[in-house]
Design a protein around this nucleic acid. Structure first.
Length: 285
DNA sequence: AGTCAGGCAACGC
DNA sequence: GCGTTGCCTGAC
């Protein structure tokens, strides 16, 4: 890499930047050109934009005003070998799913933008979740320049709380506007202590707190635990996961029973298994 | 035109 | 506790 400012980010095991960006965890990274080098750029939390790229030989290079941000954000610090070692042995479905997309990583995002984005995700397809995220960022976030392009941070709770539900509806949110606005208000008013929950180490306490929010159920709460809290044992069950558990694992139960079975069966890194299976399901079912 | 999509809350039993 | 139903919107 000859581009000035880019720093190589080391990692072990498989990693695919493109697959991870397409994996339905992150919705706002955009193609970008930095000194002629093609990659992706986006803002994480209230920070200015970062740039990341992966070369043909797999090496990852990043540019960020926060040195350690990208490694943690894209899960490049995960020890994949030991994670895979915790999976159920002899599970051929999971093994095939891993071969299908071995480079997916669990990202770790700031909690507010993760929570807010998944509140807006209900009954939506990836492309639309992305469109909503971009509209909200453009309208209520903070603009930053990088390589002649403008990137927007995710709006702070205060910005969405003061915008009001009706204004949020204009961002194609539909009935989700109410939930997003209420969540922003709860954080802004202090009735939902985001900082305290972000530092909470007991996933069950985080789950209980999240479920208090209007518009947040089991699925969205588990997404926040997994994609932001760093709780890799969380196992969000959406229609695709339910489908593959039903068709490939012959599970006929649903809801809490299915949830409990999956967490017990896939183990402490059930969330990683979920990511592999999710992509496999979307391709094959 | 009707259906459906990466859920949730409210309601009925 | 279970299973239904309505909900905004855009894509097909």
């Amino acid at each position: 890499m000859s581009v000035s400012g880019l720093v190589e980010i080391p990692y072990e095991g498989e990693f695919s930047l493109v697959d991870t960006l397409k994996s339905g965890q992150l919705f706002h990274w955009e193609s970008a050109l930095l000194d002629g080098c093609a990659g992706f750029a986006g803002c994480a939390g209230g920070k200015g934009p970062s740039f990341i790229t992966q070369s043909e030989d797999g090496r990852v290079y990043g540019l960020s005003n926060d040195e350690t941000l990208l490694s943690g954000y894209f899960g490049l610090d995960h020890a994949m070998d030991s994670i895979h070692a915790t999976f159920p042995q002899g599970d051929e479905v999971l093994a095939e799913a891993i071969v299908y997309c071995p480079g997916i990583r669990l990202a770790r995002q700031p909690m507010w933008e993760c929570l807010a984005t998944f509140i807006t995700s209900s009954l939506k397809q990836v492309a639309h979740i992305r469109a909503i995220s971009m509209k909200l960022r453009r309208r209520y976030g903070v603009a930053h320049e990088l390589a002649g392009q403008t990137f927007y941070s995710y709006p702070e709770p205060r910005a969405l709380a003061s915008a009001g539900e009706e204004a949020l509806r204009e961002c194609s949110l539909g009935y989700r506007a109410k939930s997003l606005h209420l969540a922003a208000q709860a954080i802004e008013s202090g009735s939902f202590d985001l900082a305290q929950i972000e530092s909470e180490e007991d996933p069950e306490k985080v789950m209980a707190a999240l479920l208090e929010l209007h518009g947040v159920g089991e699925k969205i709460a588990n997404c926040v635990l997994l994609f932001s809290g760093g709780f890799h044992g969380a196992f969000p069950i959406d229609v695709w996961i339910e489908r593959i558990l039903r068709e490939n694992y012959r599970k006929r139960v649903r809801g809490q029973k299915l949830q409990k079975w999956a967490v017990d069966y896939f183990g402490e890194n059930a969330g990683y298994a979920q990511q592999y299976l999710f992509h496999f399901a979307r391709k094959t079912l």
